[in-house]
Nucleic acid binder design. Structure first.
Lengths: 168, 168
DNA sequence: ATAAATGCAAAGCATTTGCAGTAAA
DNA sequence: TTTACTGCAAATGCTTTGCATTTAT
């Protein structure tokens, strides 16, 4: 296991690492929860519940899908996990809760993070009285792989300008 | 392929209006379809399938939910309707297919269009080799109504910075 | 001991699909 | 006629829930 809990040798940073996160959020340290958090830690694939379940089940047989959903809901409610609504087929999760944007491949649905801050000065006239707290940009296009592969199968593209227009 | 219907009588603007749209897309002019298109025409509420069904059923009893789904799928596949993946609970539809952005109320889920073009120069280093075709910005915050009403019930907010963090 | 978490199965919704009947072209 | 569309119901697929049992603290 990757659990080098050597006292003194490795300091548990506040809220860092599966255990730190559970303690910080007041959640019990169950092996299932820790395994899920470990899988999510640093994960940039924006996995769905099923994928998380499959992946964690490997190292942790007996895990229940319901537990995965329960855990994801807790983390999301505590603000420790972002639940993305980018994919209409299922919810995807992002452990990176810092504000950032996404590159979305319209062909294979791959989602890549963009850690960059854009200056989005929105004219007052367009705010419609809204009290804006944040923003998220989705850049739609084709990833390097799909750019080569499906050059002409564009009929299968999923999105265009931010919204689905076709389905596979 | 554009065939101008009856010249002289009533001028049907190309692709405008329920009938024009059906003809342009090569879809049969069924009363159900026309009723749905009429409801969608100019609609800025970003309704879901169920809402469309309820609304159109009023004027058109006997309409089937399946037909609504079928129609929405056709229009979406033909590029005449945008299928939004902003709301994790259900797909929402937007008849405005021109590139635009959205203001999303984290409290009541209201979605308002922003017809404005932002200059989103994305650094090459951040493109990750993607061939970007478009973008869509979601501005999250509180609409005028919710700003007054739920000032302190912030625990119920749905999103933050573009992704769900809590649920109702 | 107690409150919380797990697992399993049974719901719950939104969306899709199969098909026979129906209507548009 | 021919082909597409409609409607109903059954079927999916993702997510939630109820509840008895187990486990962390």
């Amino acid at each position: 296991m990757k659990k080098s809990a050597k006292p003194g040798a490795e300091r548990v940073k506040q809220g860092s690492g599966p255990e730190g996160i559970c303690r910080e959020l007041g959640l019990k340290l169950t092996p299932q929860r820790l395994a899920i958090l470990e899988y999510l830690d640093g994960n940039t694939a924006h996995p769905g519940a099923e994928e998380i379940y499959e992946a964690v089940s490997g190292r942790f047989p007996g895990l229940s899908l319901a537990t995965v959903y329960n855990t994801l809901a807790s983390l999301r409610d505590k603000g420790r996990l972002l639940e993305l609504a980018i994919d209409p087929a299922k919810r995807r999760y992002d452990p990176d809760t810092k504000p950032h944007h996404h590159l979305i491949c319209v062909a294979c649905r791959r989602i890549v993070d963009i850690e960059h801050t854009f200056d989005l000065e929105i004219p007052d006239a367009l705010r419609m009285g809204f009290e804006i707290k944040g923003n998220e940009i989705g850049f739609y296009g084709r990833c390097p792989d799909c750019k080569k592969t499906d050059a002409r199968k564009q009929k299968r593209d999923l999105r265009q300008g931010g919204a689905y227009v076709r389905r596979p």
